[in-house]
Nucleic acid binder design. Structure first.
Length: 263
DNA sequence: CCCCAGGTGTCAG
DNA sequence: CTGACACATGGG
């Protein structure tokens, strides 16, 4: 296992349900409980999940050296690549990803995790004692506004409820985004209540693996504006600059900038 | 009490 | 197009 750092990959904030106890990370991939640890260049597994699905989830087939060569266009990103080498994007389930990042709006990672856990416990199917899968659309659509409120979604409850109604009426189809171009899919996502440019980019990057997506949140905007000359005051200007500056794999650059916020 | 958090919708100028 | 403000909830 080369160029893979499990702690950076699971701890950078791109996923919300993984927990670390001791040296073991515990989480769920494709409805399977997964315990995983890293010793040097070896991954240690305790799971029924097959290796191909694991490799897809952690994007182990991405050629990081090639991606580093592509995005490594300035001193800052080169330094972050060195510091966080082995951080990989994760290929999340699109549905869980969309709901998760709808909950991320003006919220903390800690609170987002809490919401996702509550939704899973209350509406997701149980796979083992104390472990529930994130609810499918069919499971989650049973939730009323009041019940969503009880899961601490706050003002985001009406956005999620609206999404559930929309899908139920056949007026939105998440899977159809798979076959669209980046721009078209992004515009389609932004028609949803509570989904703007940033959340749309998160869904496209983490849920659909569109590496040309570059989500700009408060941290990314602050970092980008302090290190580069961005022409324009909007967050879209930052995203436009980044896509041009870092190129076709700019989504990877975003994650290295994002993890660097911690210090 | 303040401020901020992986933003977005709305509205005035 | 730009800035200001509200929005639920939790934590510093």
């Amino acid at each position: 296992m080369e160029d893979f750092n499990l702690d950076h990959t699971l701890g950078c904030g791109q996923v919300f349900r993984w927990r670390k106890q001791g040296t073991w990370w515990q989480g769920i991939i494709d409805n399977h409980l997964v315990k995983i640890a890293q010793q040097g260049n070896r991954l240690i597994l305790d799971t029924q999940l097959d290796k191909h699905r694991l490799a897809r989830y952690f994007r182990l087939r991405d050629d990081l050296k090639s991606i580093y060569r592509s995005i490594g266009r300035d001193d800052l990103i080169l330094q972050l690549i060195e510091e966080y080498r082995g951080l990989r994007l994760i290929k999340q389930d699109p549905w869980e990803c969309l709901v998760s990042y709808m909950c991320s709006c003006n919220n903390t990672i800690c609170n987002i995790s809490g919401i996702i856990e509550q939704l899973s416990e209350r509406y997701g199917s149980k796979i083992e004692e104390n472990h529930h899968v994130f609810p499918s659309f069919e499971e989650l659509k049973k939730a009323s506004m009041e019940e969503l409120r009880a899961c601490k979604l706050g003002f985001r409850a009406k956005n999620l409820h609206h999404l559930l109604q929309l899908i139920n009426r056949g007026e939105f189809d998440l899977e159809s985004l798979e076959h669209m171009g980046y721009g078209e899919a992004r515009a389609e996502l932004q028609q949803l209540r509570g989904v703007g440019p940033k959340i749309a980019d998160c869904v496209l990057l983490f849920g659909f693996g569109r590496l040309e997506a570059f989500p700009v949140d408060t941290h990314i905007e602050r970092i980008m504006r302090s290190h580069y000359h961005i022409p324009g005051r909007s967050r879209e200007a930052v995203a436009d600059f980044a896509r041009d500056h870092f190129g076709e794999y700019c989504g990877y650059a975003q994650e290295y900038l994002y993890i660097s916020r911690l210090k």
